[in-house]
């Protein structure tokens, strides 16, 4: 019940928040925002993302029970109380309220996603900025490092790092952050190279603007568009990766922590008898991922000058 109220609140909040995103932003961003508001895909994506974020923030208010408290007295092997009035999504194998665990799970997903992305993207952007600004051997050195990191498939790299650092939420965040570093470095560098050759950079140079000012005040801000798109899409991937690591047992060592990936893994042996317990965390992962994905794709279209009509 509280969930459906949340949905309405989210949708109205979504439309009322429709103002210019940043005063300092130029025509490109305002244009993009206008296009986003008229794109049903973007609205669906934004709605899913908003619900996800609100559920994560207000988890203590929304969750009917403590997600960590187990009540084994209600559980018999092979006979789990399914959805009921008291427990809308039923109880898990330890007698914990499934709905509360799903709600709190949003917290962990969002926390891991945002922290790992913030760290990874920042480091990547700094590396990309250094490579794009200096060029020459600095560029070659940074890009070879990026090539090496990209030669290990992302999830494998994350598993390796998380495994070697030991089981904890911090290891998962570090692992996903590291995976994101080369992606953002390469993206920003490529975007900056394209901007550096643009007419306005040439114009600024012919006016006698110093190189560092051209790079920092003109080229860099204009190169950020693809980075923001990638950040939205990378959040989707970060949620999947975090769930994947938890699924493999690499998340927090505390089994009472409600991570969606781990909740799914716990139902592996129960799949034949309790398929719903696998459905809820699965659905939660898919919907939150879909939200960031739809929003990212719509943002990409809105910011792409070639697709503007």
């Amino acid at each position: 019940m509280s969930l459906s109220q949340g949905v309405e609140a989210v949708e109205s909040a979504d439309s009322s928040a429709a103002g210019p995103p940043e005063e300092a932003a130029g025509g490109l961003w305002r244009d993009a925002f206008r296009r986003l508001r008229h794109n049903p895909t973007a609205i669906l994506g934004a709605a899913l993302v908003t619900i996800f974020v609100l559920v994560a923030i207000f988890a203590p208010l929304l969750a009917p029970y403590d997600p960590k408290v187990a009540d084994l007295s209600q559980i018999r092997p092979g006979d789990f109380p399914g959805p009921s009035r008291e427990h809308l999504l039923g109880l898990d194998s330890q007698g914990r309220d499934e709905l509360s665990r799903i709600i709190y799970g949003a917290r962990y997903s969002l926390l891991i996603g945002v922290v790992s992305l913030a760290v990874g993207a920042t480091l990547g952007v700094i590396l990309g900025l250094i490579a794009g600004a200096f060029g020459g051997w600095v560029d070659s050195l940074v890009m070879r490092l990026v090539d090496i990191m990209l030669s290990i498939p992302g999830l494998l790299l994350a598993i390796g790092i998380a495994a070697l650092l030991g089981r904890s939420l911090k290891s998962v965040m570090i692992a996903i952050a590291v995976v994101n570093v080369p992606v953002f470095a390469r993206l920003l560098r490529g975007s900056m190279l394209a901007q550096r050759r643009s007419d306005y950079a040439l114009a600024a140079r012919s006016l006698g603007v110093t190189r560092s000012r051209i790079v920092l005040q003109h080229v860099f801000p204009n190169s950020l568009g693809p980075v923001i798109v990638q950040a939205t899409l990378a959040l989707a991937t970060a949620i999947i990766d975090a769930a994947g690591l938890a699924f493999l047992g690499l998340g927090s060592p505390d089994p009472s922590i409600p991570e969606w990936g781990r909740m799914l893994a716990e139902t592996n042996s129960l799949l034949a008898t309790e398929p719903l317990l696998a459905l809820w965390p699965g659905l939660a992962i898919v919907l939150s991922v879909l939200g960031f994905y739809l929003l990212g794709e719509a943002l990409r279209e809105a910011l792409d000058p070639k697709l503007r009509r």
Binding site: A236, A243, G244, L264, G282, V289, L290
Partner: peptide, 11 residues
């Protein structure tokens, strides 16, 4: 693209 392999696998 949005369904992780392990969710789809279970399904």
């Amino acid at each position: 693209i949005a369904i992780p392999v392990f969710v789809l696998g279970y399904l």
